[in-house]
Design a protein around this nucleic acid. Structure first.
Lengths: 197, 197
DNA sequence: GTCTATACCCTGATAGAC
DNA sequence: GTCTATCAGGGTATAGAC
C-alpha cells in the first residue's frame, strides 16, 4: 500500500461503520489493513486518535463521498434534500439493514466522548445540516417564502437519524419511509413544495 | 439485598444507560450491585442474557416508569405527547447531557444484535409508539380529523431519538427544542392543534 | 443460592532491531 | 517507516467448596 496512514484510516472507517468503535480491535484493523502494529503506533498515539482521523475523513469527504453522488442529476433544491435521504434508504436496503449512519452510530455509542471526538462528531453534523440548509434557503428564495432554514435542516437531520435507527432495529424500511412522508408534509406546510406532489 | 436477580437487573440497567453495553464490564456490575460472580452466573448464562432482562424491564416498566410520571396532571392527549418529549428534555438538561434515550443508545451501539436482543429493542420502540399513537387517536376523535396515527407516532419517536442524539452531541438542548417546534408544526398541519399555540 | 479463586483469552500498547 | 515479539491488564466465564 502506497500510503499506510490513509490505508489505516480507510480500514478503520470501514470497520467502525460495520462493528462500532469498541467492537473493532486494533488487531482487526491491523490484519484487515495488512499493516503491522508498529506502523499504526508510528502514525497514531492510540486508538482514539485513529477515530479522530476517521471522523475527520468523513468531514473532509462529505462533498465528494456523500453529497455529490446523492445530488447527481438532481437540480431542484427540495428534491436534493430528499435525494440525500434516499441515499440512506438505499444504504439500509442494499446492506440488508447492516449499515446506517456511521456518524450517528458513533455519536450514541460513545457516551462520554473526549472533547476532540465530540467536536468532530459535531462538525460532521454541522456540515450535513449546513448542506441541507443551503438547499432549503435556495428553495425558499425560489418559492418566495420566509422560513428558518437552519431549524428545518436540523429537523431533517434528526428525522433521518431517528428514521434510520428505527428501520435498522425493525429491519423494515417502511419506518424510514413513513418519516420521509411526514417530512414532506412539513416541507409542504412551509410552502416549499406543492400539495399535489 | 432481598432479591439478587432484581438487584443485578437494576444495576445493569443503570450502568448500561450510563456507559453503554460494551463499556460496562461484568466486574462493574458485580461491584456496583455488591454481588458475587457466582450469583450472576447462577441467574444468567452470560452478559447478553442480562441485557435481554434489562430490555424486558424497560418494556415492563414503560407505564409506571415513563408514561405515568410524564402524564401526571396532563389530560389533553396532544399535550401528553409533548409532555413525553419534555421528559427527555428534562433528562438531557438535568444530567448535563449525560443521559439520553437508553433504548436508542443500545439500538445503535449493537450493530448486529442477537435476535433476542433485537426483538426486545423493537418491542420497546413499539410500546412507545403505541402509547403515542393512542394519544393521537384520541386527539383525532376530539378534533374530528382523519389521519394515520401510527405514522405520526413513528415520526414522533424518530424525531425524539434524532433530537436527543443531536442535543447530546452538541451539548445544547436547543437542537432538541427546534425539532419539537417543527413537530408542533406538523401536528398543527394535521389539525391536531390550533395555529395560535 | 452464595462464596473465593482462577482459568484463559483478547485488549491496547510498547520495545527495540532493522 | 516497518518488522517481530511481547507485555501488563482487564475481559468473560468457570470450578467447586460451602
Amino acid at each position: 500500500m502506497a500510503n499506510t496512514r490513509e490505508n489505516l484510516v480507510h480500514t478503520a472507517m470501514q470497520l467502525f461503520a460495520e462493528k462500532g468503535y469498541h467492537s473493532t480491535s486494533i488487531a482487526d484493523i491491523l490484519t484487515t489493513a495488512g499493516v503491522n502494529s508498529g506502523s499504526l503506533y508510528h502514525f497514531f498515539p492510540g486508538k482514539q486518535d485513529l477515530l479522530v482521523a476517521v471522523l475527520d475523513a468523513y468531514l473532509q469527504g462529505i462533498q465528494e463521498m456523500l453529497l455529490k453522488p446523492a445530488w447527481q442529476g438532481v437540480k431542484d433544491p427540495v428534491e436534493r434534500v430528499f435525494s440525500l435521504l434516499s441515499t440512506y434508504r438505499e444504504l439500509l436496503v442494499s446492506s440488508d439493514f447492516f449499515y446506517g449512519c456511521p456518524i450517528g452510530n458513533l455519536a450514541l455509542e460513545l457516551h462520554e466522548p473526549d472533547p476532540a471526538v465530540r467536536e468532530k462528531l459535531e462538525a460532521n453534523f454541522t456540515a450535513w445540516r449546513d448542506a441541507v440548509a443551503g438547499c432549503i434557503r435556495e428553495a425558499a428564495v425560489e418559492k418566495r417564502v420566509s422560513l428558518d432554514a437552519d431549524a428545518l435542516a436540523t429537523m431533517v437531520l434528526a428525522v433521518m437519524e431517528g428514521g434510520v435507527m428505527l428501520s435498522r432495529t425493525y429491519r423494515d424500511v417502511s419506518l424510514h419511509d413513513v418519516t420521509v412522508v411526514e417530512l414532506r408534509n412539513l416541507f409542504e406546510r412551509a410552502g416549499l413544495q406543492g400539495v399535489t406532489r
